[in-house]
Amino acid sequence: MGTAEITNNGERLIVALSGEIDHHSLKTLRGVIDVQLENYTPRLLVLDFREVGFMDSSGIGLILGRRRIAESYGGKVVVKNVSGYVEKLIKLAGLGAMISKQQEVCRK
């Protein structure tokens, strides 16, 4: 089961994902994130994968779908704290440029 913990400061929306991201958990995750994304239209959406134990290409769908929404109002999406395995998937999808190497502590 994948979960998302959200920190929102208006300008920046940080989503700390955890658990397993697959086609099943995607439905819930998408709903939780999109409510915030559409209501606050943050300049930057940070998807934090630190606590993600597993994901398949549904996780790529999650990133692409949120990027589509953010770009529709001029926002940007970055992903961070990806494990070697998640990074392999993201690079396979050609989204390596979305990985933020910046170290920041913005979590609750």
Partner: peptide
């Protein structure tokens, strides 16, 4: 548009 279209690519690689 919520599916990445990468299922077989993941299996293959």
């Amino acid at each position: 548009g919520e599916r990445a279209g990468l299922g077989f690519a993941v299996m293959e690689s």
